[in-house]
Design a protein around this nucleic acid. Sequence first.
DNA 1: TTATGATCCGAGGGATTCCTCGGGATTTGT
DNA 2: ACAAATCCCGAGGAATCCCTCGGATCATAA
Lengths: 209, 209
Amino acid sequence: MARRISRKPRKTPTQARAKATWNAILEAAARVLVQRGYEKATTDRIAERAGVGIGSLYEYFPNKEAIFAILNLRWNEERWSGFQAELASAPQDDLQTLIRSTVRARINATRRNPRLNSALRNLIPLSVTQPQARAIYEEFAEHTVRALQSHARLGDRDPRLVAQVMLHATHAVIDNVADMAPELLDSPALEDELALMLYRYVSSSSARD
Amino acid sequence: MARRISRKPRKTPTQARAKATWNAILEAAARVLVQRGYEKATTDRIAERAGVGIGSLYEYFPNKEAIFAILNLRWNEERWSGFQAELASAPQDDLQTLIRSTVRARINATRRNPRLNSALRNLIPLSVTQPQARAIYEEFAEHTVRALQSHARLGDRDPRLVAQVMLHATHAVIDNVADMAPELLDSPALEDELALMLYRYVSSSSARD
DNA sequence: TTATGATCCGAGGGATTCCTCGGGATTTGT
DNA sequence: ACAAATCCCGAGGAATCCCTCGGATCATAA
């Protein structure tokens, strides 16, 4: 067996009909993944759920992993662009409102599909491998560092480390909440507390106040 | 096949020799899980790595899932007892040192085996199902609420919610770091920043200062 | 219309996995 | 020392799963 070597690489659909099946497969994959988990999400089941023959599935995707890699890619892009769009038209007068806007946008981005978010999140082999996820993270980190340098007085604290902790905390808390209590994403309480925590964290330079 | 129904439930080892194989299996399972991931961690491979026949494995574990459920149980207990032991003999004079001690103990608990921690963490079906993990979390949450009520002045903020956010943040950040940059667990920087963030978060009652 | 290419299909091969079963080896109790 | 209990073993059955392949069906352009 030579699974890793795809001798018949994925074909890109040209006709409208083909694009429809392509989408159907990806959406079915998302639904099955959320409902049954990665292991039970067999290619046969995905094809069936998409209303498509198994042959058609392998016409466009070289193997099972590729389906979820692309699904992950899609979700990351959707989340990231949604976040940016919302943040672009949000108030950013001072540090406090900037932080609040960012937290809100970040929550709303995940809120588009919390179940898919947690399901994809737990596909370690994929998310780790994907360099595009790292790229987004890096971009976000640099953006945060610049915001800190221009809006916050950190004294002698390392802005890069502070940014890392802020991002990790925000990211991790929101994703964890999406995992364990998705309904909490809809209440403003999470946003309030997260924003408060982050703001206080960077609002003065000395460890004691 | 009736995999879910274990007609021959797990036998408990009585002789010393049997306990040795029982341990060998669990330790092999941990090693294989960390090295190859859950899917590649086949029962055959675990038995082989443990230096044990596959039959012996199924003498004590009804199925593959059970092995990792027990492994998860063990790790949770080890982490939790380690945390409590360290915290018991740590300074807790005021809120700030209490927070710092807690953070340090929490980090050290995970530091016992960061790789196993992240590997087990991503076994959703297990960790979610396991009620004992929830129990530990609840106990921790109540403990935190009491600490907040006696040491912090939160004003009209809900101590339960604040505790939730603190726990989620701490838990999530540490686990995420263990995932993405385990060497960071060894530097004091993480402890410093986490403790600072948490302390400021609960150090005064109004949103503005 | 007809030819060419794109799309769709699903039975089944090859590979792998989980787990059983019958019996042999070792320890324990008497 | 002998029987019973406990422990160990690994070949192989049953169940999937991933993916291929040859050919049917549909779309488009000449």
